[in-house]
């Protein structure tokens, strides 16, 4: 069932993501800007993604939904990048209580699809068009929904676009100093002057 014609509805209380889950998402999101460099393989393999752990299915679908890169599109397919591994490394850096709150937020996001928009299935069981429509409801829903979706966007987008391979299609230059051979100026010599009035 498509939800396109149904106006956004607030979540039932018992399914409402907690404020803490949203803040956890926020913490995770900004930490995404700061993942260690990664070299390992990318998708789908929970043994290789131990920190995503039980959230793997929902995280994979969120990544696919928020990026929605179609075959033949000019953008680099997710599986050619280390996006999932980057997210895993991010999750590894989160304090236990933040990780646990984030997990609760992800579970709520997944299960709330059953009632929100009357899909009667969790988010992970929807096709991509419905998943996008559902995510858009969160994006424009109540503050809690908006907050969690905003955090998820940051996690996914920084994890994808930090990959150098993604820059070609958008003509982003990336690092330039070494490539252009710009010389380091080094330390600035000691100051010679003390301004009058500032002298001892």
């Amino acid at each position: 069932m498509s939800a396109d014609s149904t106006p956004p509805q607030p979540l039932p209380n018992h399914l409402r993501a907690t404020r803490r889950a949203v803040i956890a998402g926020g913490a995770a999101a900004t930490a995404t800007l700061s993942l260690p460099a990664c070299t390992s393989g990318s998708k789908g393999d929970s043994a290789k993604l131990p920190h995503i752990g039980d959230d793997l299915a929902v995280v994979e679908q969120i990544v696919d939904t928020l990026l929605a890169i179609d075959e033949g599109s000019p953008f680099v397919p997710i599986e050619k990048t280390d996006t999932m591994a980057n997210i895993d490394r991010l999750f590894a850096t989160l304090p236990d209580h933040v990780r646990s709150d984030l997990s609760k937020g992800l579970t709520l996001f997944n299960l709330a699809a059953i009632v929100l928009g009357w899909y009667f299935r969790p988010f992970t069981a929807l096709d991509r068009a419905d998943r996008i429509a559902y995510a858009r409801r969160w994006e424009t829903g109540n503050k809690t929904q908006q907050g969690l979706l905003f955090a998820l966007k940051q996690i996914v987008y920084v994890s994808y676009w930090r990959e150098e391979i993604t820059w070609g299609p958008i003509q982003y230059d990336g690092p330039v100093t070494r490539r252009l051979g710009i010389a380091r100026q080094g330390l600035t010599p000691l100051p010679e002057t003390t301004v009058e009035g500032a002298a001892k």
Partner: peptide, 10 residues
Amino acid sequence: IADKHLEFMG
């Protein structure tokens, strides 16, 4: 998100 995001980045 999705197409809107890709349009923005593109």
